[in-house]
Design a protein around this nucleic acid. Sequence first.
DNA 1: CGCACCTTTGAGCTCGGTCAAGGGGCGTGG
DNA 2: CCACGCCCCTTGACCGAGCTCAAAGGTGCG
Lengths: 233, 233
Amino acid sequence: MGFDPEHTKILRQVSLFAGLESQELQGILLAARLVQVEEDGYYFMQGDPAAGIFVLMEGRVKLVQVSLEGQQVLMRVVVPPGVFGVVSLLEGGEFPVSATAMQNSKALFWSAAEIQQIASSYPAVAMNTIRVLAEQVQDFQARFRELATERVERRLARTIIRLANQAGRKTAEGVLIDLPLTRQDLAEISGTTLYTVSRILSQWEERGIVQAGRERVVVRFPHGLVMIADDLP
Amino acid sequence: MGFDPEHTKILRQVSLFAGLESQELQGILLAARLVQVEEDGYYFMQGDPAAGIFVLMEGRVKLVQVSLEGQQVLMRVVVPPGVFGVVSLLEGGEFPVSATAMQNSKALFWSAAEIQQIASSYPAVAMNTIRVLAEQVQDFQARFRELATERVERRLARTIIRLANQAGRKTAEGVLIDLPLTRQDLAEISGTTLYTVSRILSQWEERGIVQAGRERVVVRFPHGLVMIADDLP
DNA sequence: CGCACCTTTGAGCTCGGTCAAGGGGCGTGG
DNA sequence: CCACGCCCCTTGACCGAGCTCAAAGGTGCG
């Protein structure tokens, strides 16, 4: 596969391939394989050898890490045109997380050998990878600091703000977080329990800040969330 | 500066420059500047424009991030020949942490422009950077998960094990963590308070697992720590 | 329309954070 | 060389945010 013009268009927006010429993109696209995974299916599992890199075209994917005792943490939600499996740039690694489709999803795939080849042919790709990873390091540093120093309510507010920036969609009622996230998911992102998330959302709903439903959060008063995140009155 | 043969020798072990020829290393070394910072001094402060990259030659450096309220988290301890300030590979960024000398320290320095130039001249350097960053991402993911799901005692055990791997020195009494870390520092790494760290170390000392002193921890029975970290009897 | 799964809410408890007080090592200056 | 003083460390007492467990109420899909 590889000739869908729609895909070329999306590839242009992929941070990993920024700064490449149309023709170069075409070549890269030719090497890709399209992988479809349906809801609750896996792109890969934690511990699998890092087989290759993915660029999400359609759907939603979550990256989850499980501890030995089976406790889960949701590391990241990927929306198109996001990249995941970057660790495949390195030889002999394994995936540190599992990648699950939250909805039916499509992703372009390059094997580890292919993407390593691409990165060495196009220095821009290597630099873009460095940028992507550096951003991830900073993001995790910030989340780590928050988890270490802040109360649950604040962390949850920041989580919702992040998700709104990433996957928010304006509707009549407010900004809809366009992801099918359960209370459990929100808890796993913010480092708390589903019960605490539920209680906090209920409070926020009473205060008119959000409107919450089954796997659904709409932000009605974004400034209210920011005030909680920054601990203002 | 740049002709100290000692430095060439150390540069060989720097992950960033792995796989380069002696001659290439010499060239890179020529472009470096030696920066000395004495105890409690700063290499850079959080928020400063990312001026360049450092390779620690002597001493100890800690990377600390401060929240708006002034709460600190210790992100990483750097020992020779560690790299810090990698974010300088990107244009226009700022340092997300402050880098403080825990002891009198020396580091080689390349300006952002220089290291960007080096990375584009030597693809191996770009690949090495990707490796370093990917490891950091995984490290923070793991620490994030631990902080989200595990008790303080376990997290502290893991912290001590990590530090022992990184800066452990065998002595007659056991493995000395060769870093001047206060209880406060240990608390900031593991996401707890200095009081809790103190209490736990006292317990461990009673059980013969460690020997603790002023800015000093010696691991006497490593297996005991591992058992705590893995939650075995 | 029934069932699986998601969500809400209550009650109780505990881990670990906070505050307070005092002890001890180490460097510095007299 | 000793003593003062600055940090660093320890320990106790208290308490509260949020976790756990339990039960019941919604929601939407097949």
